[in-house]
Amino acid sequence: MKQEIIIAGFGGQGVLSMGKILAYGALMNDLEVTWMPSYGPEQRGGTANVTVVISDTRISSPIVDTYDVAVILNQQSLDKFEHSVKPGGLLIYDPYGIHRMPERKDIRIIEVKAMDATIEYGNAKSYNMILLGSLIKVDPIVSIDNVLKGLKKVLPERHHHLLPANEKAVKIGMELVNE
């Protein structure tokens, strides 16, 4: 079992953190994991992405060509990564701010209106956690329990009062793909 995942969007959307929580979740699941960010000025605007490889055996390369799963949060990232999804792979995207919809016919495409859900939930910082909830619902590579344990590891203790709100956001995200 191996999954090569890319999460791509604008800097500030929580792309790297989402990958980090997913990576910690994989650690809690006792899997091998690598987390490779795009680093640099894009943290302050522009596009940011992170590659997370999760496997039950030793991972050779943290850098890959093609992805089993792509989580796409803006138009630039869709243009860049739609064609890097492996045939039969999964593309999750938020249509907010996207004007050209994905066109591939040989992959599974799931639309998640995470921005709308975030606005409805009224907690702007929960956007990435809502998306993470949708991701693990469609692609249960990591259990929700382990995602929440991972979140506890990523959040400094002084922010642990935010855990319930984040757990709620993950559950909102999971319900979004029920419909």
Binding site: A23, L27, W35, M36, Y39, I59, P62
Partner: peptide, 10 residues
């Protein structure tokens, strides 16, 4: 290299 400096793993 910058990769192993910036990447996370176990």
């Amino acid at each position: 290299d910058g990769i192993v400096g910036q990447m996370m793993e176990k």
